[in-house]
Simulated scan of single mutants.
Amino acid sequence: MTTRILPPEWAPQQATLLVWPRDGADWGNGLAAARDAIAALAAILCEYQPVLLAAADSECRDSIAAHSALAGLVALTVVEVPNDDIWARDTGPITVFDNEVRRFLDFRFDGWGGQFAATRDDAFTAAVLATGTLGDGALERHEFTLEGGSIEVNGAGALLTTERCLIKGRRNEDIDRDSAATLLRDALGVDTVHWLASGDLIGDDTDGHIDTLARFVATDTIAYQGCRDTDDAHYASLAAMAEELAALTNAEGLPYRLVELPLPSPIHDPDDGHRLPAGYANFLIANGCVVIPAFDDPADKAAHEIIAALFPDRDIRAVDSRALIRQHGGLHCAAMQIPAEHS
């Protein structure tokens, strides 16, 4: 009998996969700041585990070599892999264990529903595996369109996702909810798929990735993005999502423990003024630490304290994420964990 499991993010990790922002992408005059943010994230992670940093070309390699924050990091390995953008959570491998043998799942990536160029990013997982830096594990291609940021698992059979992203938006238009749930169960080894119909951050162009909204932090606990300001445009949607989360039950039929995260003050794009999808649910779990987004906001401190209480055995580190949120992404979006091989 085949036993397949997608480990939760807090399981032991072999490495973290990151992508260096490339010149000529969408960063414009924010390229240097984005590189500083990824360098800061890489430097923190290298204190706890190896980091694989994908460089699109020789210019990226040269800028990595010249960046002071990356100098002398013995845990850092740079690999040259073509890419369109830096969001490794969505383009990198989703790693499962099948009878304790690793498999690197490569789902179809179409640029978040055809919004952006995706040819190189759709080939990214296979290209990273071809470098030989991921270790043992076979590539398993799936034509179902799925990004890593759209799913959360608790390691005990439950998966959390949003309808709007996977089946009621730009992707998988010919697949209904039951068929999608079957695909997820078979590919990822989960028993239960929890679908959320509500929840959205203004400015989000992923159509409701769960990693911006609600995150498993233990088998029985979900941290979620809240909003206490009734005048904020997020209030109704996030309140409805909180009600949906409260109605979910685990394998024992018990409700999950819910922990609300604060919402930072609105951040707007400096060029055209649109609101950016800033929130604290987009934190990153690694061996021995949790890296949380910071926005130079009073809520940064409250988010730090809440997440620290959720992970008392891990260091809580922060990275200024304003450069990343300008391109509608964050720390979790930029990183994909490679689970450690079973011993």
Rank of each mutant, 00 (worst) to 15 (best):
Q225K: 00
N250C: 11
D232Y: 01
A294V: 00
A246D: 04
A32F: 03
T95R: 05
D186I: 14
D271A: 15
A65Y: 08
E305D: 11
L45R: 06
L261I: 13
E140F: 05
P266D: 14
A56D: 14
G199L: 02
D211V: 05
D90C: 14
E260R: 08
K168H: 12
G199I: 04
A11W: 03
L159D: 12
D272M: 06
T162S: 09
A240G: 12
E47M: 11
T230Y: 00
T77L: 12
T3D: 10
A117F: 04
L166F: 06
D300A: 12
P298E: 14
D186M: 08
T77F: 01
G72W: 14
R4H: 08
G72L: 07
D136H: 09
D186K: 13
V78F: 09
L166C: 03
A158R: 08
D36P: 00
L129D: 11
A40Q: 12
T182F: 03
C60N: 14
G203T: 03
L245C: 00
T219L: 01
D136P: 02
H304V: 07
D23K: 06
G253Q: 03
V259L: 07
L213G: 03
A294Y: 00
S150C: 12
L17M: 03
A281H: 13
A239D: 05
D296E: 12
H342T: 10
D106F: 04
T162V: 02
D320Q: 06
A127F: 01
H268V: 08
V51M: 13
E305Q: 02
M336L: 11
R314W: 14
E341G: 15
R4Q: 06
H234A: 00
I306W: 15
A247P: 01
P93W: 05
Y48V: 03
P293K: 13
V19C: 15
F104Y: 14
P8H: 10
R164C: 02
T91D: 09
D26L: 05
E9L: 03
P8D: 05
T119M: 08
A214D: 08
G157R: 13
A251R: 11
L188R: 15
W27P: 02
P312R: 15
A127V: 07
F124S: 05
W112M: 10
T162Y: 04
H304C: 13
F104Q: 10
G288Y: 01
Q13N: 12
S63Y: 07
P277T: 01
C333W: 11
K168D: 13
P8N: 07
R35W: 07
V128S: 10
L183S: 08
D26S: 12
